[in-house]
Amino acid sequence: MNEAREQVLATIRRGLKRGPLEGTRRAELEARLAQPPRHLIPARGQGSPSERVALFIKMAEYALATLDRVTDEQAIPAAVAAFLARENLPTEVVMAPDAALAGLPWESQPLLKIERRAAQDGDKVSITPAFAGIAETGTLLLRSGQDGPTTLNFLPDTHIVLLPAGRIVGSYEDGWDLLRAAGEAMPRTVNYITGPSRSGDIEQTMQLGAHGPLRLHIVVVAVN
């Protein structure tokens, strides 16, 4: 379909009354891609770190996520177990094969039955780490990789996400900077997740858990 490609590009250039971009103009666009300029960023996400955490929590709750705060990562397993018990949810959980997650004292919660793998049909609860949190809209940023299967974010009914407070940034742009700073190529999948799955397609009445998780539970880990 090279012919199609050439024809489409030629028609565009005819409309723009020029040939392929060259010289200075091209260099300017190259520079714009290499050093992407930021547009106006809303003031709301640009507060102090503690204000960002507070905003993240407020916005995530507005998007109908539930949140827990722990002040010690060692307390995460207990917080997860308590959440599952409180909500009367199964204790079989599928966890992202992530080294940091594996290092937590899960053995302190003998009721939890943990598998580390991608999600399968029938899985009820998943636990994944977040790459970052974006305060302006209470959005989680998750990425795929050998330690982060995307299916864990969508197949189970309940999705539990662990988010270190230090990873909460103000804006989407700050999130991209964090990802670029991690130095890898773009992951196959980057998910922004803002609250649990929902649909309003039947009479505009909002129902949670359309195809993705019915519950999104975020454990914010704020180490003092």
Binding site: M59, Y62, A63, P97, R117, A118, A119, E136, T137, G138, T139, S144, G145, Q146, P149, T150, T151, A185, M186, P187, R188, T189, V190, N191, Y192, I193, T194, G195, P196, S197, R198, G200, G212
Partner: peptide, 24 residues
């Protein structure tokens, strides 16, 4: 569109799964 702050899922897909990925 819907008056949401952001839609629930915004997903950026880049290429096929990477060699070490466990799904995709």
């Amino acid at each position: 569109a819907t008056g949401q702050e952001l839609s629930v899922y915004t997903t950026f897909s880049t290429g096929p799964r990477h060699p070490a990925d466990v799904d995709g």
